[in-house]
Structure formats: structure tokens, C-alpha cells
Design a protein around this nucleic acid. Structure first.
Lengths: 355, 355
DNA sequence: ATGAAAGCGCTAACAT
DNA sequence: ATGTTAGCGCTTTCAT
């Protein structure tokens, strides 16, 4: 009889020796309850601030938990409540320059909400994407953030998911989905208005491939904004690639063209840097002869450029943070569907400094 | 009576209508078992390839699982088995250029092992680090990967953890801990031997801050390797910062020094790029007059550089992958303690092209 | 070869 | 105000 009792007790709590070797078995709420001299249910209430407990009891339980270094078993909690305090973040493209600040922003907002993030890199592979999606769902994530490199709308990652999804930077082509994207048109407009405010009127635009959504949007707005002032680009938008090499090449073309120009707005900082290099080599002074504005505000590029480059910042970290906050809202029952455009910011540097 | 029976059945399986709305409740193993006409225990064995089952039964269960899109509840599995098939990845510094390939490599190896990754960015803040550590432990991760930007050894993230830890890129200063690090000395030696093989004998070395571990290691090996050939740097190692600006400045100093030089080994690609720019502006031809080698093999820098830059690649992705594999080994009971140095690779480009 | 039952740690109804 | 109990979904003995 007494043997049976001892056995039972061992199964519910643990001996002091066992408690010391907490490496072997982390403390459970039953251990905490035993130490505080209450039941497991009461301990749970105390720890979660629920139920009606004597303050003194609550205190005692917290103390016991502290003493034991109790953190709770997430799996057990999840199993009971159905909530895991976990979200999945899928980068459809590889983790890269754009994904990082997005992820950092999201991770920041989620971490503050005591939510952990599963990281998945789908490498632009639909198979991997679906694999990760299933994995995340079987892990009962409370929600999903989908990010990627291209701003172009993409098909939804799935239809009728059991959890909310927010797209960050990229957007779903279903307008009912929640997407947080940079307002690239706003960015382009800011760049042009900035150049106009400096008195520049003979502006060129060098950007990425015409088939690229961002390049088209930025170019379109550039032309429209100028047209709104009764102006036009000195030469039609120069589409090419997102590289310094193209920037150099484009600047060469501009220089050899008879048309004069006093400013270049570039679709990326890399392009701008290439342009700067070639212009300087040709003896043009920046910003005196030619003012230069880039896009992305990528630190190594804007700082490495000579002179330091004025650029458009899409606030990727803010987009990631906003997306995460919207996801938390959706998880808590207040979804904010639709595509949310966030304004850009112009960061002035020497390449457009007056004088 | 019959009512009671129906209720019971509803609680265990579900009606066809419910099964269709799998958005509301994902299929459980009980559903699968019911559909296959077996018990939950049998279904579990079939799905996990355990126990002694008739092949036909196994087949039937798998089919049912397939049909229902059964993925299993990770929390429930974890609660029972104690294994979560998750690991935590903590970047001690912010997620940045170095962390990305490390994380990608690790994520790649872990994903292949059906293990999911919790991402944590501790932002160089010990408080955050400990917070994340506790969070991860309460989530019962099976192991931890600790990464960071600096290669210098750091104190262990904790003593006597209940799960294995592998340090990637950074290393623990406890030699018993498992760390996977780049062999920076190897990298520096490769750079110097490459320059020597081109017949260069008047070599300069421009690098980052002297207090920085990587800068010191690379400089030390540079000098030792030359000394081994009876040579010395044309001027003492030039310590500065990890920036293009310092590269430009250092090149200026080199040019104004009476001493001639026919090669520069730089501690980073950014520095090398700055050096290249100033040398070219001064009319020195690369590689004819001066051969140039960088460090990091950072795509945007080596490609943007004129001419394209020969560089040392630390294979960060490989380090991340190796670290993850070692962690999986440790989780499976075969730890490989100690600091593991991985060789670097020289990637030749135009900046050291012969002729 | 298969089923029944216990239990992982926690929370939430329900008792007291 | 606190204790008791019943599950959450799965795995794993132990019966049969």
C-alpha cells in the first residue's frame, strides 16, 4: 500500500535530487504547485492571472515558480488551448537584402508580443513553399507572414487557410488578402519633387528591366510627375538591369547624347552608384553639374558612393513591423484586409546638396 | 442511450460535414483511424512505421491519411515524445550580411532533416539573449545554434543547458563547446600565396581595426606567411576601419609613400574596393601595376569593383550547414565537441588576372 | 496483428 | 478561494 503511494507521489512531483538535476527534467506546473502547497489548477490560475485567488496565494505560487525556474511547457499549453504563440514567416525568394529588414521588423514586433517566429526559406520554389506551408500548419502556427523580393502581386499562397496571412513587401493578387507594401509611386514622386525643388529641369531616369514591376511603376510615376509640371524626361526612361555596370553604361550613353541633363533619378542605389562613377570620371561634378538620387537607401551603397547618395527609403523594417502588427490583430480577431501602401521617405545626402 | 452513443462518436471522430470544413478543425489521427477502420494506436504505428502490422492495413491507413490531408499535431506529438523537431537559432548580433548565409545554410540542413527553425535576433543585447534562451527552452527546442558577426570567442550562452548547442561563425570560449568557424588564417595565407604565385613581392596589407579579432588574425598570418618566404610587408599592416572610405584613404597614404608596391591584400572587400578606386584614379592599373585581393567574397562588392575583385570566401553557408549537421548529430546522441575550423577558398577574378 | 488504456503538462469547467 | 477532473492529440506499453 505505502509503496503504491510513494510511486504515485513520484509520478506527480519529484524528489529533491531530481529537482536539482533540472537538466534532466524541467520543472512542471505540478512541481510549482507542490512547492507552493496548492493544486496544479490553482497554480495555473495564479501564473496566468485568472480566477479568484488570495493575493498571498498568488504571491506564493509566483515565488515557487521563480525558485524552480519554471517556464511552462509550450507544447502542453498549445495542446490545451489551441494557441501556440507562434507564427510562420515564409520568404518566397531567398533570404536577401530586402528580406532581412522585413524579417527583422516582423520579428521585432512579434517578439514584443511574446510570439516566436518559424523561419522558412522557400527559395522561389513552389514545391518548397507548399512543403513549408504544410509543416507550419501542422505546427499549428497562429498565423503566417509571407515575404519576398519582388513587389509584384503574386497568387495567394493558399486558399482558405485555417489561420490569417499577411503579405509583407510582396502582395497577394487577391485584393481581399492583407498585404503591406511600399508605395513605390510615392517614392518616385518624392525623388522627382526633390530634384525639381533644387531647380533641376533636365532630368534623366535610369532603372531596371522593363518587365520588372518596380521599374515600371517608378518610371511611370516619374514621367507622370514631370508631366504634371509640364515637363518631360530629357530622354525616355532607360531600362536595363539592377546593376552598377548598367549604371556606368547608361551614364556613358547619357554623356554621349547631345542632350544636356542636370539630374539623374535612378531606380536603385546600385545603378546610381554606377552612374556616379562614370560621371565623375568624365569630369562632371555631383551635385553641382548633375544631381543624383537613388532608390533603396542601402547603407553600403549610399555611403560608398562618391559623393554620398541621396536616396529613397522604403522603410522595409517598418513594413515588416506593420505586417506583424496586422497579423497579431488578425489573430486576435480584428483583421484589416486589403492592400496597405506605406509611404517612402527621401534621405538627402551630398549628391543633391544645394550649392 | 442511443443519443449518448452518437454524442460519444461525435467527440471521437466527426461528421462528414465537419470533415469538409477542415478549416475549422484539422483532421486528427482518430479521424484517420476511423476512416481506415482501425484504432488510433494502430494508425499511429502505421504512420510511423512501427509495430507489426499487416501491409494491407498500413496501406489503408496511409491512404486514409492522404485522403484527409492528415499532417498530425506537432504539439501533441511533442508532448508525448519530448521531441519537438525544432531548433532555435539565435543571432547575437543583428541579422546582417554575415548572418544571412549562415542562417540559410543552417536552415537548409535542418529543413532537410524535417526540423523547423525558430529565429531570434538578440541585437547584441544580453538581456534579449537570455529572454530568447528561456523562450526557446520553454518551447522545448531540441537544440540551439548560436551565430553572430564577430569571429572572436564569446562566453557560452549558458552553462549546463538541457539541449545541445552549436556555435556557428562565432565560437564559445569554452573549448569543450562545439563551434564551427572559418579558418581566417588559412584565408589570409591563401591570399598571400596567390599574390606570391603571381610574382608579387612588394605587398601591402590594409585592414580593419586592430582591436578586431579578424583583423589581427588575418594580419598576423599575412606577416608570418611572408616571413616564411623571407619577405615582409612594404609597410606595416595598416589598421583602420571596415569601410570603403578607409580603403581610399589608405591607398592615398600608400601612393604618397616613397615605397613602391605591386600588390595589396585587404581585410575586406569594402576596403579593397576603396583601394581600387583611389589607385585607378591615380592612374595605377589593376592588376598590371598592382594586384588586389579582398576578403569576404561579397557579391555586390566584388562585382561592383573595377576591375572585378579576387577575394577570399569563408563559405559561410557551408559553415551554417555544417553547424546544423553537427547539431543534428548532437541531438541524436553523437556530439562532436570542440572548435572546428573550416578552410577558406580563393576566388580569382580580374584584379589578380595574369597578363 | 490489432485494440485498449494510460499518460505527456497544461488549462478550464465544475465542485466544494 | 481552492481542489478535482476531464480532456487536448498523440505515442506507447500491455492485453488480447
Amino acid at each position: 500500500m505505502s509503496t503504491v503511494l510513494v510511486r504515485f507521489s513520484e509520478a506527480r512531483t519529484r524528489t529533491p535530487e531530481e529537482t536539482l538535476r533540472k537538466i534532466e527534467r524541467p520543472p512542471t506546473i505540478t512541481d510549482v504547485a507542490a512547492l507552493a502547497g496548492v493544486s496544479a489548477g490553482t497554480a495555473s490560475k495564479a501564473l496566468n492571472g485568472r480566477g479568484a485567488l488570495r493575493p498571498e496565494t498568488r504571491q506564493r505560487v509566483h515565488q515557487a515558480a521563480e525558485q524552480l525556474g519554471f517556464t511552462g511547457n509550450a507544447a502542453a499549453r498549445a495542446l490545451g488551448t489551441g494557441r501556440t504563440y507562434t507564427v510562420g514567416m515564409i520568404t518566397t525568394d531567398s533570404i536577401g537584402r530586402f528580406s532581412i529588414p522585413l524579417m527583422m521588423g516582423a520579428e521585432d514586433a512579434l517578439g514584443a508580443g511574446r510570439v516566436s517566429v518559424f523561419l522558412c526559406d522557400a527559395r522561389d520554389d513552389p514545391i518548397r513553399e507548399q512543403y513549408y506551408l504544410r509543416t507550419l500548419l501542422s505546427r499549428n502556427v497562429d498565423g503566417l507572414i509571407v515575404t519576398g523580393r519582388r513587389t509584384q502581386a503574386r497568387p495567394p499562397i493558399a486558399t482558405s487557410l485555417p489561420v490569417p496571412v499577411v503579405y509583407a513587401f510582396i502582395s497577394s493578387d487577391d485584393p481581399a488578402d492583407c498585404s503591406v507594401v511600399p508605395d513605390e509611386a510615392d517614392g518616385a514622386e518624392r525623388a522627382i519633387r526633390h530634384l525639381l525643388s533644387l531647380g533641376r529641369r533636365r532630368i534623366a531616369h535610369v532603372t531596371g528591366p522593363e518587365h520588372h514591376h518596380s521599374a515600371r511603376v517608378r518610371a511611370g510615376t516619374t514621367e507622370d510627375t514631370l508631366a504634371g509640371e509640364g515637363l518631360a524626361l530629357v530622354v525616355p526612361t532607360m531600362f536595363g538591369e539592377w546593376s552598377e555596370a548598367w549604371g556606368r553604361q547608361a551614364a556613358g550613353i547619357l554623356l554621349s547624347t547631345a542632350t544636356g541633363f542636370d539630374a539623374v533619378f535612378c531606380g536603385s542605389d546600385q545603378i546610381a552608384r554606377g552612374v556616379a562613377e562614370t560621371l565623375r570620371a568624365a569630369g562632371r561634378h555631383i551635385p553641382q553639374d548633375v544631381a543624383l538620387v537613388g532608390f533603396d537607401n542601402w547603407d553600403v551603397m549610399v555611403d560608398g558612393c562618391q559623393p554620398p547618395l541621396t536616396s529613397i527609403d522604403m522603410d522595409l523594417e517598418g513594413i515588416g513591423r506593420t505586417a506583424a502588427e496586422m497579423l497579431l490583430d488578425a489573430i486576435n480577431g480584428s483583421p484589416v484586409p486589403g492592400r496597405h501602401r506605406r509611404p517612402c521617405r527621401l534621405v538627402p545626402r551630398t549628391s543633391t546638396a544645394v550649392g
